[in-house]
Write a protein that binds this DNA or RNA. Sequence first.
DNA 1: AAAAATACCTGACTAAAGTCAGGTAATGCA
DNA 2: TGCATTACCTGACTTTAGTCAGGTATTTTT
Lengths: 294, 294
Amino acid sequence: MQNEEIGQVRRFNRVVTQRVGALQDSYLSRGRPLGEARLIFEAGLSESVDVSSLRQRLGLDSGYLSRLLRSLEGQGVVEVRRKAADGRARQVHLTQKGRGEFETYNVLSDQLAASLLSPLQPAQRTRLVAAMAEVERLLRASTVEIAVEPADSADARWCLEQYYAELTERFEAGFDPLLGNTFHAAEMTPPAGWFVLARLDGVPIGCGALKALDADSGEIKRVWTAPEARGMGVASRLMDRLEALGREAGFKILQLDTNKALSEAHALYRKRGYREIGRYNDNPYAHHWFEKAL
Amino acid sequence: MQNEEIGQVRRFNRVVTQRVGALQDSYLSRGRPLGEARLIFEAGLSESVDVSSLRQRLGLDSGYLSRLLRSLEGQGVVEVRRKAADGRARQVHLTQKGRGEFETYNVLSDQLAASLLSPLQPAQRTRLVAAMAEVERLLRASTVEIAVEPADSADARWCLEQYYAELTERFEAGFDPLLGNTFHAAEMTPPAGWFVLARLDGVPIGCGALKALDADSGEIKRVWTAPEARGMGVASRLMDRLEALGREAGFKILQLDTNKALSEAHALYRKRGYREIGRYNDNPYAHHWFEKAL
DNA sequence: AAAAATACCTGACTAAAGTCAGGTAATGCA
DNA sequence: TGCATTACCTGACTTTAGTCAGGTATTTTT
């Protein structure tokens, strides 16, 4: 990484935290401590929130949050009720007054955003918004975490279900997981194989698997990215990790198959140095077979 | 301004303050209150700083800053000495230990920046850095403030001097302010005329003037942007303001002259709807004359 | 030379933010 | 059924941040 890049990131950090951060705080606290304001904002995002979820999202101490909630209850902006499904847990709702406050914060946030744009000329404004979208997307991309996980965890299963559902929709002939060269959790468990999961803010957004074929070769399967996370390079990073695992396992060759409907996947494999080979398995859904020497 | 733009700015604000802001704080406070850390950082930027300048830059209360300095003195990271030139004022120096702390913060800042970039692929990284540069530049542009000010203030004179110096350098024949259709402060003082100044973070970075020629027409002069602030649309905004002042004053027509060396200025005038006319004054440095109906 | 202004300091506050050690009620599990 | 766990609460703190009213030394102005 060049010094120049680092320097640019640091300048960016400085300017943005000053302009946006400081403005944001002053706009949004409006006579109420920032902690309370943030709480109203979080609570307003949905009909009701569990206290535990607030605690996690805002990173607050249990006692501290409790006190904040008591204060907001005193102001009549929230109600805290015990949860029907679990009597220990409690849920936070905004009262009508709270809804009003939430809307006010929303209007202020809009004004804050507008105050950043309004001094600019239309062309500059368009460029700023586009650059912000790019920064946002790539910053989010840079916080995607990829880790080897058990293939039978709830998150792993969720990803695989999404993946199958997408294949069913996209394949001409539909997709039946039982026919399609399925592999089971055991085959994705070291040392028979590996399952990697990509998460954004803790939420699974992609997966991939590597299965040992023999001592020298492995097969890559089930590489999937959630639609909302596409264009962030997640699949590439999953492949990076899977290939690294293959290298560690001593494989000389990685193989994979794919359906003709998955054109983005073809492009990705080609770009990463996979070359098309003849059929090496009897997967009824496969139209193309690739391999790459590690 | 469209809702879509506002929404994008708000998403950007949220993502950036979360990622950058939170990381920054945790990285940079390292066991020391953030206020003290910021102080060390500011003090380290130069050999020595006046307390008053720190107070201004960090926006701190005099008593509060004083206490922070005592605390840092106690930790042995700064020395506060009276200033030779003015016995009331005091100067802050980092001790050797303080220098070490400063360097540590620098390294941490670099690491923080690197941690945002490192998960990305080279192409993404390049795009992120470019987008950050764009956002930084345009956000800075959006905080430029333009105001009508007295033409004989220190900042106004500074701008005009810079402007003259640049003309001297760029004009084939050099430039002598006494010959060049000079106008004096009185002519830029309402209602005879107006002087507008552009500031970025309080520092003057551009100026412009409008002078009444008669009841129906005015002349725009001395539109200048500091080299480091170019490409931010400052000149356009100065022109906007000057034309608005002209409209308020009831002028029907604005005129201006310019030297052939100032090609960017020509482009700007043409883009804003000025059309070239014949010589209307005897400015020896002018090669082109323009006017625009308001 | 006296008066006014300045630059900083000290003391005495307050509010906000955060921490930690118990405590209570509800739930899950053996 | 009883014991461990959980989800949250309360009380008793500390730290950080910030404000404000004087006070002292120095410089500038008159």
